[in-house]
Amino acid sequence: MVKRVRAVVLEARDAGWSGPPFNPITLARQIGLRVEPSAAVPDARTIVDDRGTRIEYNPQQKRARARFSIAHEIAHTFFPDVGDAIRNRCGDSTVHDDWQLELLCNLGASEIVMPVGSLPKLDHVPPLERLIQDRLQLDVSTEAYLIRVVSVTDAPITMFIASPHPDGEHVSYRVDYAIASSSAPRLALAEQRIPASSVVRQANAIGATAHSIEQWPDGEPASVECVGIPGYPGSLLPRVAGLIRHGTRDLGDFLHFIHGDILAPRAIPPVIVCQLVNDRALRWGGGVARQMAKRFPKAEVEFGDWIKATPKAERLGEVHYATTTSFTLASVVAQEGFGPSGGFADTLSGLG
């Protein structure tokens, strides 16, 4: 698949196809495929009928997602049996080994939206949050970007995509497919159920990230980094994209940045949520603090009583701790007063 797609991409680039971003619709037209928008299609699909071969895609999907889906369908057309059935972007859940075909088409899609040379060789793979930001420069999906990352590094890393599945009253996660770097162990992760204790469950919102040292991939400690990505059409929960750093037994640097809802932090004790307040505030009136006041009014009252009992000259630099139902809320008095400073106002007036 990779060789076939690279040959097609090379020929298209010789004919003028360029990027980034590399538009798969332009490529499809160059190789004689029609691409048509259709809001009736959940994601994208390939149809072969008396009108020939065409790809339909949902134009209401996010741009990076739509591009990857179209590229995925282009890869479907490289199989001789493409006309035997309508090929949908999400695969056919009734066919036990359909994930293998979908994996090949995902590999092909990554080669289309991020052709060879889009990323330099990586000796060190940055943290997942950094990769998420970097992929925006190429205007590609997180899924496509991570596939390309593991293809250009010698570090022992496996990327995987997992999706939620109803399991009684709970939701379990199962690996849809996994792709390993050249030095990573070859693991049979596809269709494997992920333990309920895994941080994969914490990436339950698009953009939310989580890190942990876990053993479920192959029984040995490994760093697992996850992020929530758009789910399959019709699913209320996002899928999860992840990186497994084999042989990593700790999370490295002391400070880690994760993305999520600060009003509902992960239940991993001890959790301390910090918010900045000024030394004249008796109530929390704006930003995150205002949302905290709505959710935890008792904590706001405790803070008000505490700061009124603290002399004004001694407030700056102090911290008030309040215990909520799930975490400790630390209100850091790190701002003197509120509103524009005198110096800033004088500067503005001086500018006339």
Score class of each variant (00 low, 15 high):
194 I>L: 05
158 T>Q: 05
184 A>K: 08
172 S>N: 06
210 A>P: 02
258 I>W: 00
263 L>V: 06
208 A>I: 05
219 G>S: 08
169 E>G: 05
226 C>T: 15
248 T>K: 14
159 M>S: 11
186 R>C: 07
253 D>K: 10
264 A>K: 11
267 A>P: 01
248 T>L: 14
160 F>S: 03
238 P>C: 13
171 V>E: 03
219 G>F: 10
171 V>L: 03
236 L>Q: 07
241 A>S: 14
192 Q>A: 13
202 Q>H: 09
251 L>R: 10
208 A>D: 09
259 H>C: 11
189 L>E: 05
177 Y>L: 07
215 Q>T: 14
200 V>P: 00
141 S>Y: 09
235 S>E: 14
224 V>R: 00
262 I>M: 09
154 D>P: 13
229 I>N: 06
204 N>V: 01
235 S>A: 15
240 V>Q: 06
203 A>P: 06
168 G>R: 07
176 D>C: 01
265 P>W: 00
180 A>D: 11
198 S>A: 10
221 P>L: 11
157 I>H: 05
157 I>Q: 00
264 A>G: 07
146 L>P: 10
157 I>E: 02
215 Q>G: 04
258 I>D: 01
182 S>A: 15
222 A>L: 09
252 G>L: 14
159 M>L: 14
215 Q>W: 10
182 S>G: 05
144 A>E: 04
248 T>W: 12
211 H>L: 10
207 G>R: 01
260 G>R: 06
265 P>M: 03
